[in-house]
Design a protein around this nucleic acid. Structure first.
Lengths: 204, 204, 204, 204
DNA sequence: AATGAATGAGAGTTCATTCAT
DNA sequence: TATGAATGAACTCTCATTCAT
């Protein structure tokens, strides 16, 4: 019999819970070792189930990777996406940056963010998911910029919104990268300048 | 017997050429599939030699990866590192960004930049190389900022230099990431804002 | 995940049976070709299982070799070790010698005895096991000599016991060697002299 | 062109010298690692010539092994074979035993003696060489026994000669084995008993 | 005669996936 | 539903042997 994941019935709560357990375990392993180096055996052990059982809930390892990517996208959106003001953005970013630097958090993990992005550069299917999530996050930032301008009593044309969003998003992604490449970065040499930069990106 | 690469004799021109051929092939394969997914067999085929021969020039696959990483660091430095003014920096960045977006260049490749960074998050030895290269590049940017200030007739304290360098470097890394995550970015919606941002980072 | 052999749980009967199957197959192959020349593929085929499966029960080929060595030591002890009188010793020796000569017995095999000994000359870990087993067997012979003396109404000083044990043990080992080097040896030209020699070693 | 070794011309002195160099190097490597584990590359390096050149003097690795075996047989004969009295035999044996124990001598090496013997158990061609050499050495011992009897004024029938020779030869082989298996053996706990045993084997 | 670069078969090992239970 | 033993393909790496020079 095909695994539940493939039949068209609605998945039972049990099945959803199992999928969740698998995904959490996979996340942990992928964060530790990357997609390729993490083995199904390790994921199974982490999820405290047999290797065979995983295949009842996911077609194969790649399906888990894809699910993890979707999950990470949603996570990313909720982590920095739920902010509504420049100050909140800066604070959220500083907090996430600390997670990135420590590298101990399964959901806010810079290395995995890079793994996912690199995978998107190589596989079209993944690219689609990643680009969509990125676009959605971009839209969110863009709206924040727009609303902030209105709140401050001025307007930004679409072109300006676009380019500022691009830069803002690049900066955020870049902080993920630099959290790994430059362990010397401290909150203190980041905070002030970051707030200034964000303010500047929100200027008239 | 140890491969020539490990004996203390100076490597022959032939050996250097072979190493180069292997590294180019490896680069190509790593760009296509990532470090783990690229097989020695594929590298050998790409380099048009037998798999066994590679081991005369590199101790093992990991040694190739390390060499590629060092190479990519040097490449990165020479690509954006040789600039001396904000304008040159912006231009160089825009040019590199186009390579990143196209993804067709083995040396200026965003996916591989992310692979290397992710690897640095997981392996200490690689972290050392990457952090050193990143630090050197950061120093270069910092000096550029300092000299620009002097040229413009003002001075920046060390603290300001540090935080601006951090932001500038994050922005650059972030553009690599976004070249993959956001294929909608065009030169036109990047150029103006980028120059402005760089100028702003160089302000009094 | 580590193979069952390494986890601390008690091995299941199934696992023990599989290990046994592997060891028997390995024994066969090692006897035929020696430790190095026997391939994992051949062992797997002999055990009628896939090569990969072996690694669920043994960490690597070396672990199999070590297990075989331990096994052979135990076998050696039980083959000639369980004797309590000079006559029993001679008889046991003559019987084992026939196995050695025929070379068809996996457990009482002269070539493998030599392989193991040669391996002990080159690898410290193996040396430890072999020396321990040899010492234990020596002790057994020594006690036999001592008890026989007492039975016969005399005593042997420690020095005499030591040197006679050394010679007796050398003789036994040497018969293993000569079973290969001299196929002309027959039971008839060995039996009488051997009993005489053993008696002589047990003299007052 | 076939290597000199295969053509029917008499080998030039140069060729003989080269063969000798190769054999010495091979001996060294075989003693260190055994036949299988010693690589042609290592042999070439030890002989300070290129790997390719070896094939001008030997058809393949197996031919070297065979030559080494022949060589070792001759060596063995000359080491213990040149003795003419029980006392000389004991002395020679004690001296050789010390080499065996130290394991540092390329020609009088117990591990290699066992390697060769084990190889004889597996390959007919090698068996022939080894058995011949062993038989010749046996004959020498036998003659020594016979002459000693005559010298002492008695005669030994053929049967007695045979069985005593077998035992003597086994003892010698066994000392090679025990030099590895029992590092506790000292000259002092061997010497007296060994001389006694040899005398006993030479008795009326 | 000599080199050592090159080959290619085959080694040990790992691991995603399947399947009998 | 769940297990984990079993498979087999693919991996990295080694090495005896060949060959252009």
């Amino acid at each position: 019999m095909k695994p539940a994941a493939e039949r068209c019935e609605a998945p039972s709560p049990r099945a959803l819970a199992q999928r969740e357990r698998i995904l959490c375990a996979a996340q942990e392993c992928f964060v530790r070792h990357g997609f390729h180096a993490a083995s199904m055996a390790e994921i199974a052990e982490t999820a405290r189930m047999s290797a065979g059982l995983i295949y009842r809930y996911f077609e194969n390892k790649n399906a888990i990777i894809q699910a993890i990517i979707v999950r990470q996208m949603e996570e990313g959106a909720s982590a920095i996406g739920q902010v509504h003001s420049p100050d909140e953005l800066a604070s959220a970013l500083l907090e996430v940056f600390e997670h990135w630097q420590r590298g101990d958090h399964a959901d806010k993990n810079a290395a995995q963010f890079l793994d996912v992005t690199a995978a998107a550069a190589r596989e079209q299917e993944i690219a689609a998911v990643v680009q969509a999530a990125n676009a959605q996050f971009g839209l969110h930032l863009r709206e924040m910029l727009r609303r902030n301008a209105i709140r401050e009593g001025f307007a930004l044309d679409e072109e300006a919104l676009t380019s500022r969003t691009v830069l803002l998003q690049s900066l955020i992604s870049g902080l993920a990268v630099q959290s790994i490449r430059d362990p010397a970065i401290t909150r203190s040499n980041l905070e002030g300048a970051l707030r200034e930069l964000i303010s500047w990106l929100m200027r008239r």
